[in-house]
Design a protein around this nucleic acid. Structure first.
Length: 190
DNA sequence: CAATAGATCATCT
DNA sequence: GATGATCTATTGC
């Protein structure tokens, strides 16, 4: 995707990234679950605490990787959204594994099915070998990149509150490919 | 199946 | 010194 395609609001980008493909090295997966984090009064966003060394990339141009360590052990990958100077971003929460499966299994140290390789923000960074070394990398080209599928697949998008936060817990900013088997959590049945 | 505990450390107060 | 956009294993019903 060209860098300009990331210069839309975080919720728009979060929805638009569904069904696009994330590549790193020989591994790749299709994005099936995202969350939008806003600027301003979104207290769940890291940018709500202001411009710090860790969050600096959030305040720069879009289409860059914002990667941070959580709970002392897991890396989380975000895509910077919106025009230069606005701190929105999109957390990548789950992928459907597409290539490099053997390497993903080796990194994740699991024996269960492929749906468990990438169904969580900490799992997919481990499977694809993404760490803070890639902090600030552009995502339109280079070793870490996001590309659109040739023809966007047909699917339904569901919107839910975000997961794992303690502020703004009811905001509808999580976007999922409805009923996809690789989601980090299954939706409540109607 | 649901709830809980523990791991583990960069970041910010 | 407390916290956290998580994951895994384990316990309990």
């Amino acid at each position: 995707m060209p860098l300009g395609a990331f210069s839309i609001s975080a919720p728009e980008l979060a929805q638009g990234l569904l069904s696009t493909v994330l590549f790193h090295g020989e591994t790749a997966g299709m994005i099936v679950e995202t969350e939008a984090y806003l600027g301003g009064d979104d207290l769940a966003s890291h940018s709500a605490r202001g411009h710090t060394p860790r969050t600096s990339v959030l305040f720069g141009p879009p289409g860059r990787a914002y990667i941070y360590l959580i709970y002392g052990m897991h890396e989380c990958l975000n895509v910077v959204a919106g025009p230069d100077g606005t701190p929105g971003c999109v957390l990548i929460r789950a992928l459907e594994p597409l290539s490099g499966l053997a390497l993903m299994y080796r990194r994740r140290q699991i024996t269960s099915g492929p749906a468990a390789l990438n169904n969580g923000p900490g799992k997919l960074t481990e499977a694809l070998g993404i760490t803070r070394k890639q902090y600030g990398y552009r995502l339109d080209s280079g070793p870490l990149r996001i590309r659109r599928w040739r023809d966007r697949p047909v699917f339904n998008t569901a919107v839910t509150p975000r997961i794992g936060i303690s502020q703004c817990i009811d905001w509808p900013l999580r976007f999922v490919w409805a009923r996809h088997p690789c989601l980090s959590r299954t939706e409540r049945r109607a």
